[in-house]
Amino acid sequence: MIEVKELRKSFKSLEAVKGSSFTVEEGEIFGFLGPNGAGKSTTINILSTMLKLTSGEVKINGYDVTKEKNKVRESIGIIFQENTLDEKLTAKENLMLHCKLYRVPKKSRKARIDEVLAIVDLTDNLNQTVEKFSGGMKRRLEIARGLLHYPKVLFLDEPSVGLDPQTRAHIWEYILKLKEKENMTMFLTTHYLDEAEISDRIAIMDHGEIIALDTPKRLKAQLGGDVIELQTTDNQAALEEINEKFSVIEATLHEEGITLKVKNSDEFVSTFMKQLETPVTGLDIRKPTLNDVFLSMTGREIRD
């Protein structure tokens, strides 16, 4: 559904995307995870014909994004990172305009508008001017609008920024249902880890490069073990002691304490607690997250 080969994009001297290649299958949810400025929006804007690529080849639904722009536009829907609603108009007017721009069949317009508004829980605000909406309501309306024409490929650029966790979960539930029903392909960028986990596959992006691409499960499995967050009275001393006495996959010191990666956390902890001399003030064992994957590859957190 999406084919990207050696995609590059430069803004003057800055190289925002440095030759990424990937393909997304029909019906797949593909996630782009990366810190601010990684090049996620730039990639999405190129894929949706809104930005000219510097070099490389991109095909959406079999159409070339530079040569067959209109065919591509007919195949896609996009929820931009920035607000693109007309705030002087009402919710209904915004949605109706979208139906017309995307040639949603006249007969189904009303039903679809009601459907998407119900998904984002804005049914009662149908005739309210968008200006009077809260930030979260605007974002929800924007999501609703993107779903309105059942695109073949839906791009979502940080869709749930500014939404509370409950609303996020609720909306995702419906998006996924709609995706199943219409067999949509979805391409989403995010720096919310739990949101990225929805994806079938994830590309982790940093400084314009894809540094890892796999299913969330396998990415985490690559780390080869569990994560232990440790706080002690003297973290520096504890780190030295750990490196001396124990076999760990990785131990990194950071502001809040030490992050340890170990093969088998149960086994490790029982001996560890007996043998470590630096007093422990806090210990937390957890399964690895995508943030740990990013951390181990770049030495930085996704959100720093």
């Binding site: 209109n70 931009f80 920035e82 607000n83 705030e87 721009l101």
Partner: peptide, 14 residues
Amino acid sequence: DFGYMREILVSPVS
């Protein structure tokens, strides 16, 4: 300025 132009430009309208 308010972003709506992108909604128009990304649509399949010629």
